[in-house]
Simulated assay, not measured.
Amino acid sequence: MTEDRSQESDRRKDRDIAAHIFTTSSVMVGLCLTIISVVRSLPRPGQLETAVDDLIAIAALVFLLACFLSYAVLRSRHLRRMHRVESLADGVFLLGLTLLAVACGLFVWTIL
């Protein structure tokens, strides 16, 4: 009985984390698209701006993948599969954040 409650509590926590990844990664896709449009509207587009917006576009696709994976967690009924996919969604989300941070760093340090 206590083990069932513990598993249900873990499942609820996992779904909460997946819901946060789902909503945040979908917002990050929109943010990446906004950043790309700002970079493209700069008066002097150069080689770096193209590299930065390409990197941000890749980050947007990575965030989209994290969104799909977290949705799969929310729809999953199998606890073991849910844990594996949630770990993958976490890693993919962190990869997207890293790509976005690298792109922003490239953009800022070359403008100065």
Rank of each mutant, 00 (worst) to 15 (best):
C67H: 13
E3P: 07
A72L: 12
C67N: 13
R44Q: 11
H20P: 06
S26L: 15
A101L: 14
I58C: 02
A89M: 09
L88W: 10
L88P: 03
T2F: 13
I17R: 04
L65M: 09
L42Y: 05
G46A: 09
T23C: 10
G96V: 06
A57T: 06
A66G: 12
R77Y: 04
G96K: 01
F22K: 02
P45T: 03
P43A: 03
G105V: 03
A19Q: 09
V29D: 06
V102L: 15
L106I: 09
D16E: 15
Q7C: 10
L42G: 15
I35T: 07
M1T: 13
L97Y: 06
W109M: 11
L42E: 13
G30W: 01
L100R: 01
L61H: 14
D90E: 13
V27F: 11
H83Y: 06
R81E: 09
F22E: 02
R80P: 00
D4A: 10
T34N: 10
I36P: 09
L48I: 12
T98H: 09
G46E: 02
L61I: 04
S37R: 06
L74D: 01
G30I: 05
I58D: 14
L69Y: 12
S9K: 13
V29R: 15
T34G: 14
S26G: 11
H20V: 15
Q47T: 05
A60K: 00
F22R: 07
L100P: 00
V27H: 12
S25D: 04
A19N: 09
F63L: 10
G46F: 05
D90R: 11
R5E: 10
E86Y: 04
S6G: 08
H83R: 12
L97V: 14
